[in-house]
Structure formats: structure tokens, C-alpha cells
Amino acid sequence: MRMKLAATAAIALTALPLTASADGDVNIYSYRQAYLLEPLLNAFEKETGIKSNVVFAKQGLAERLEREGRNSPADIVMTTDISRLNDLVERDLVQTLDNDVLEENVPENLRHPEGKWFGLTTRARIIYTSKERVEEGEITTYEQLADDKWDNRICTRSGKHPYNIALISSMIAHHGEAETEEWLQGVKDNLARKPQGGDRDQIKAIAEGVCDVSIGNSYYYGNMLKDDSQRPAAEAVRLVFPNADGRGTHINISGISLTKSAPNKDNAIKLMEFLSSPEAQNIYATANTEYPANPNVTPTGLVAEWGEVHPDSLSLQVIAENRNAAVKLVDRVDYDGE
């Protein structure tokens, strides 16, 4: 009797998800939270009638895609940084896409040369300083973070976080590994506390007087201003776009790839085109204070107030290639240690 019950349940279980990914939809494996995608996907459905289905996880989606092979239901993978996109290419899980709309909407430096991924938004990794305790212009470059002057005054999240890894990768590209190691050691020596929490927590730490300077992505600040409980902390800091007068500020991208298996390829391409269109790009900018990848879209609101960013023109590919070197560097200087 119990066995029968279990068997029935098992059959019901396997049947359950089949209804969730019908043909004619578009299926997304996303490293970005589903609720952040919702406004975009709703707009897409309204325009085209195509429904989107999402699985969100921070780990394991590439492995799932790989193992599911040609039968994978996923059409699209969305990521929040370049190294995940590069992983997909290296594992040969995504396909080349030659598409005029995407090529027009996404500038060359923000997409894969063969169309294996396309950037949708950019985010600047900037320096936050205390309005009270740091003069305007006192720090203007990433390199200065290693100055003795900031001893015991810097807070960051873990050196191993992909956003920090990408920043360190860009430093390696510009200065070489040895010099970057020295720099990273300098930054570590200046830390006011062991790396912890997220980017918002560092801004809060400045407001609390734990430290005076932190590193963080630009959109976190924007999102903190929108939240009543976090606004006071955000208002205590000033934004510095580092190296603006030199090589430019380090940027990372959130991006999208078409999987090799893509059972709903036409729909997937439509979605990719839509996400790079002005309409969707504006949603990105206003909803999550990110920079549109599409150069024809003028950002509004807070992103516009920050003015034009001068981005580091370093190829994202190079940043992705330096990733493993950067990770090991973080271990060597024991950045996350006590």
C-alpha cells in the first residue's frame, strides 16, 4: 500500500515539470535572481507573447547544462560577470550567433568576437569614500588603495568574490603579476577588518566609522538609496570613479549566451534582441541602476546623474583569462585571512 503510494507520487513528480516548459516558450538558466529578471521578461512577453521560464542558481548550472547535453531544455544562459560567460565558451556549451540586431545594439568590446556571448549591462567597480573623513580627490586610482595613508581604513568583501577577482585580473593585465601581488598585499595591509559581507556591507561600514574607503559595484549604491533603511548609510559616502583620468574605471558585464542545445532557438534570439533593445536597456538602468550596454540608450535617473563613465578599454576576454592567476594571488597574499 505504502509502496503504491510512493510509486504514484514518483510518477506524479516526473510529470509535474513537463507542464512548466512547454514548447514555444524560452528557457533560461540564470545566475541572476529571477525576480530581477521579472520586469524584463514580462515586457518581453507583452511584446511578443513568448513566455519565459527561469531556473536561478549561483552554482552548478553550467554543470547541469553540460550533462544534459543535446537534450537540455535551456535556450539561454544569463550571467552576472565575464568569467562565467567565458566558462561557457571554454566548455563548449554555447553557440555562435551572427545577428545584426545584437551586433548593432552591443558595442564590439562588450561581446564575444564570434558572438558566443553578448554583454547586456555594464557595472563599474568603484571606490566609495566617507564624506566626513576623506577629502574629495584624496583618492582617484585603484593603485592608491595600497598607499600607507589608508592603513587600517579600507573595507572590502572577500577577495575571492568574482567582482574582486575581475578587478584583480584587470590589475594583472595592466601591471603584471608581480607588481599586482605587491599592490594586493598593500591593500590587504590597509584593511580595517577581515574581508566579509557584500558590497553594501562595506558602504554601511563606512557610515559606521569602521573604515573610510571601500570598493563596490556602482549599482549597489543606487539600490541602497531606494531602500529606506539603507539610505542613511548610502548618503554617508561619496562615489569615486577610479582612474577616470587615466586608463579608465574597471567595468564588468552581465551577459547572455545562446546554448548549443537551444530547443527554442528562434524565441531565444528574439529575447536576446529584445534585451539589447532600448526598451529593455532602460528597464535595466532604472530598475537596477546599471549602465546600459547599448550606446544609443541614454541612461536616466541616478545613472545619468553620475555622468559619463570612462571605462577601462581592456578586453573582457583578457580579464577572463587572468582569472585563475588572480584567484591564486588572493590566496598567496592571504587576502581573506585574519
Binding site: P17, S21, A34, Y35, V54, V55, F56, K58
Partner: peptide
Amino acid sequence: PATLILRPFNFETLATYVYQFASDER
């Protein structure tokens, strides 16, 4: 963690629902 990785499309349990906000620092 296992639920996150293995789940079908558009499928949330209470734990995954909590996580998507918590993981975004909300």
C-alpha cells in the same frame, strides 16, 4: 543548495525563495 541547482523551470520552494532575496543583500 541542491534544490537550487536541480529544480525545474519557474519552480520555487520556500528556501529558494528566501535565498534569491538574501543572496541579493535584501
